[in-house]
Design a protein around this nucleic acid. Structure first.
Length: 901
DNA sequence: AAGAGGACTTGGATAGAAAGAG
DNA sequence: CTCTTTCTATCCAAGTCCTCTT
């Protein structure tokens, strides 16, 4: 009940408000947000994003489409609503966010845009991790902010009406978002009071300075502070974030947001594993795994066949490349490829059979090893003097020297780990004792010059080299699975090097030793020749014939001997395609359960059983925010979290009903977001936090296995990650439906990219701002300035021409041709168009500078949604999918244009 | 119930190739 | 055609989730 109440209320409110507001929060643009916020401060939250209107429509759709039914909706709606609305919003909001550029863009942003700030911050410029980190941090901030924005957006969740119907269908995230808006409304209702008080307990973060605070949050804060109800006021606040990088708060920057120090408590201690069984045990031959069912199969045709066809058609298409072709036509399974006629095609196995068997016959040639080390003889200096090193010692020194210009070398941990491992190779009594006395620059410079030489080679030489390499690798590139020739993914054994962990990885800098044949276990069909060991005198560690697994080979990771590095087939293989399809079918199936799941967890928000309450809230966060499950991690890994491992300090309740998230997720990518949630959720979070320290687990009675066990009771095969897939694909389809309006091909492509961007933001797929970003932006701004100058001159000439006067002289002092006023007007119009184009370019660039679109396209968006959309709107599929994506998604190419997720 | 072990998916960075802009 | 900018393909780290033991 309660739920419903809010939902509705929220929705309504949200909507209204929202509509007004722009989406405040988008992540990307913190700044942008500001803008928005200003204008319609209130709504900001989700609303803007939500574009309520749209949302609604969607809802409508959805509702119609699915089931949603009223009744259900009413009930479910509460939960639903939140979710649903959000999505819609997000997009819009986000877009808007781009704030800087867009909104007020031109002027300000342009000049020395914000971007710089970010970039600059990253002073270090380290390439790799550290640099990356910083950069990231920076980005993060920005990113974060954006995200926040998104979230904020979410609140819109309740789009109200729509919420009901469709919302169910919609991913939570979408819905929820409304939260903020909601929140506004909500707290208006009641939430406020209670919640606020609670919060205080939270600890730690140091947000004192606003800087640290994420933009999004700031907004919220403000809003809350000031007019509780709504909006944030100024955009300015947002900006602060940017500041970060640098200066002020170093802390801020760091990836790990929360306290740098990890409270002992938090450090979850994992148990040290005693022995590392370095050697895998083995043979499990027939352990059959039952699970796999072939669920899908929409098609009657065996996958393998289908795939082939698809591939064929796809490849063909691509080759053809004509834009003309509309996907649909091309897709039609035209002929098969001729390309390699080789395989025999037995196509026997279809999709995974129930018993866990993955293949019947398997042939391949093993793996290829990197060439042995070639000593270069360049001497590094120790205390200013050249040192003689053995080839082995030199090899390791070179690994380090090559990283001189990366951020890794600024990290103490990296240097220590490196020195410890290098010392083992140098020997105890080597002259080299201290890293600080080492000067690797001679080697670094040698390396740079080698790179330069390579770059200077003529294109013929390069081509010859490439072909030479290809020739050597050709035999390793393919495997024959059940008679079908399939590409192998990573047939090259990883070369030795220094471990580059992400974030603050405790093992960064350790030597990753060379892998030899006797480290490698080969998996191959019985009765076929075992690949010959490519290194004379050595042999494989083991040869297995396990058809219940898909790997062709593996070795133990030298950095963490308990883990393995596998050689699998490429993404284009039918084995991968099959499981990919199963993944999407499962996510699609979630649509039928989502409503029930949401109403169930909504009910449990207030359960007396603390375990149930935590499961309910965790599920809600995963559903609404697309968080990852959050498995436990060991101490020898970077300290990152997911939903189940969130710490108290990662989630800050801000009164009326806003939750501020700030944590490092996978790959130490920072997640910052502020989301309005239902009051029961807000209260539950406060309760989970009470009495704990910042580093304590927020969900102390939960872990991923308990959570997933619970989810499985709700739907067969359901796990936390399915929500991410569902959320992403659902959002894509919804956005495409909402935004597609015909127009030119380029417009449709742009719509798709906007939809894609929304998904990327929801999933928090970030990238570091490229080094050249600010340069690129300023170049574009210069262009605009030039065009504006020209424009002004035309205007002057036009005014003069109207009076019959000749044009003013050009900058070069030469007289210009006399033009008629009409001709001048035309020039003015053309120039304006050019300026607009560049301005739009800048906006897009700014918006996407921290957003990575690729990850969601590769892993989260059901390709059938894209293919069907392309067919419906006559967009060539090659516009959306590149060659490797076409190959990977061969299984999806023949869907009906009417396909819906 | 907790771990260990194992298999497979997801992710950001980057180097090199291709496509554009001037 | 040359210099950028954008796109791809790779690389390999870092998650998720399942199963089997203890």
């Amino acid at each position: 009940m309660a739920v419903e109440a809010f939902a509705k209320t929220n929705l309504m409110e949200d909507i209204d408000d929202d509509d007004d507001m722009p989406l405040v929060f988008k992540r990307s643009s913190t700044t942008s947000k500001q803008n928005q916020s200003n204008s319609s401060s209130q709504k900001q939250d989700g609303r803007s994003g939500r574009q309520v209107p749209d949302v609604r429509s969607p809802n409508g759709q959805s509702s119609s489409t699915h089931k949603v039914k009223t009744a259900a909706s009413s009930k479910a709606s509460p939960a639903v609503s939140p979710l649903t609305s959000p999505k819609a919003l997000p997009l819009s909001s986000r877009t808007s966010p781009a704030p800087n550029s867009r909104t007020s863009p031109a002027p300000n942003s342009r000049t020395s845009p914000a971007p710089n700030s970010r970039t600059s911050p990253a002073p270090n410029s380290r390439p790799s991790s550290s640099a990356g980190n910083q950069a990231k941090n920076v980005n993060q901030q920005s990113n974060i902010a954006p995200k926040e924005s998104k979230q904020a957006v979410e609140p819109k969740s309740e789009p109200n009406d729509e919420a009901e119907d469709s919302e169910d269908d919609k991913p939570l995230s979408a819905r929820v978002p409304s939260g903020l808006s909601k929140s506004n409304s909500i707290h208006a209702n009641n939430v406020l009071g209670t919640s606020t008080s609670v919060q205080k307990s939270r600890p730690p973060k140091k947000e004192d300075s606003d800087d640290e605070i994420p933009l999004a949050s700031r907004f919220q804060m403000k809003s809350s502070a000031g007019a509780s109800t709504s909006k944030f006021s100024s955009s300015e606040e947002v900006k602060p974030k940017i500041r970060q990088n640098g200066l002020p708060s170093a802390t801020v920057l760091s990836k790990r947001p929360p306290g740098e120090v990890k409270p002992a408590a938090q450090a979850s201690v994992k148990k040290p594993r005693l022995s590392d069984a370095s050697t895998p045990v083995s043979s499990k031959q027939p352990s059959v795994k039952t699970e796999k069912k072939t669920e899908d199969d929409d098609d009657e045709v065996p996958l393998s066949q289908r795939i082939k066809k698809a591939v064929a058609s796809a490849s063909k298409v691509s080759s053809v490349k004509k834009a003309t072709k509309v996907v649909s036509s091309s897709m039609k399974k035209t002929k098969k490829k001729l390309k390699k006629p080789k395989y025999s095609k037995s196509s026997k196995l279809q999709p995974s059979s129930g018993d866990g068997q993955k293949w019947t016959t398997l042939e391949h040639n093993g793996v290829i090893f990197p060439p042995p080390y070639k000593p270069h003889g360049v001497k590094m200096l120790y205390k200013g003097k050249p040192v003689d090193l053995t080839p082995e010692q030199e090899e390791v020194a070179t690994m380090y020297a090559v990283m001189l210009d990366t951020e890794y070398l600024t990290k103490q941990q990296f240097k220590e780990n490196f020195m410890n491992d290098w010392r083992k190779i140098l020997g105890k009594n080597h002259v080299i004792q201290k890293l600080e006395e080492c000067d690797f620059t001679p080697i670094y410079e040698w390396h740079q010059s080698e790179k330069e030489k390579k770059k200077q080679m003529s294109s013929e030489e390069k081509k010859a080299l490439r072909e030479e390499k290809l020739k050597q690798e050709e035999k390793y590139m393919w495997a024959i699975v059940d008679g079908v020739k399939e590409k192998v993914g990573n047939f090259r054994v990883e070369p030795p090097g220094l471990f580059r962990g992400r974030g603050e990885h405790p093992k960064m800098g350790k030597l990753k030793r060379r892998i030899r044949p006797n480290d490698i276990t080969i998996n191959i069909g019985k009765g076929v020749p075992v690949p010959e060991c490519p290194i004379p005198g050595q042999r494989w560690k083991e040869v297995r014939h396990d058809n219940t697994v898909t790997w062709l080979a593996f070795w133990n990771d030298p950095i963490n001997p308990r883990e393995f590095k596998y050689v699998f087939l490429a993404a284009s293989s039918s084995l991968k395609g099959q499981s990919d399809k199963e993944k999407y079918e499962k996510a699609r199936r979630l649509k039928d359960y989502i409503e029930g799941i949401r109403s169930a967890y909504t009910k449990d928000f207030t359960s007396k059983d603390p375990v149930k309450r935590q499961i309910a809230v965790a599920t809600y966060l995963i559903d609404k925010l697309a968080l990852r499950a959050g498995n436990e991690k060991d101490d020898d890994e970077a300290d990152t979290v997911g939903c189940c491992t969130l710490k108290v300090e990662n989630v800050e309740p801000v009164p009326p009903n806003i939750l501020k998230f700030d944590f490092l997720g996978k790959d130490s990518i920072r997640y910052q977001n502020e989301v309005a949630v239902y009051e029961p959720v807000f209260k539950a979070i406060q309760q989970f936090r009470s009495g704990k320290k910042g580093g304590d687990d927020l969900f102390d009675k939960l872990d991923t296995s308990k959570l997933n066990a619970h989810l499985k009771e709700l739907m067969p095969g359901l796990t936390a990650k399915v929500f991410r897939t569902y959320n992403a694909s659902f959002t894509l389809e919804q956005q495409l439906t909402k935004l597609t309006q015909g127009g030119e091909l380029a417009d449709k492509v742009a719509v798709y990219n906007v939809a894609n961007k929304e998904v990327a933001i929801i999933c928090n797929h970030q990238r570091t701002v490229s080094k050249s970003h600010s340069v690129q932006i300023s170049r574009l701004n210069e262009k605009i300035d030039e065009l504006k100058a020209i424009l002004e001159e035309f205007k002057v000439d036009l005014a003069r021409a109207k009076k019959g006067k000749p044009p003013v002289k050009g900058a070069d002092g030469k007289a210009k041709r006399n033009l008629t006023p009409e001709a001048l007007q035309k020039k003015i119009d053309q120039t304006n168009v050019k300026i607009d184009t560049i301005e739009r370019q800048i906006e897009t660039k700014e918006e996407l500078k921290t957003v990575a679109l690729g990850t969601s396209k590769i892993n989260y968006l059901d390709p059938r949604i894209t293919v069907a959309w392309c067919k419906r709107h006559e967009v060539p599929i090659e516009k959306m999918f590149n060659k490797s994506l076409l190959a990977k998604f061969a299984w999806a190419m023949d869907v009906e244009p009417s396909f819906t997720f």
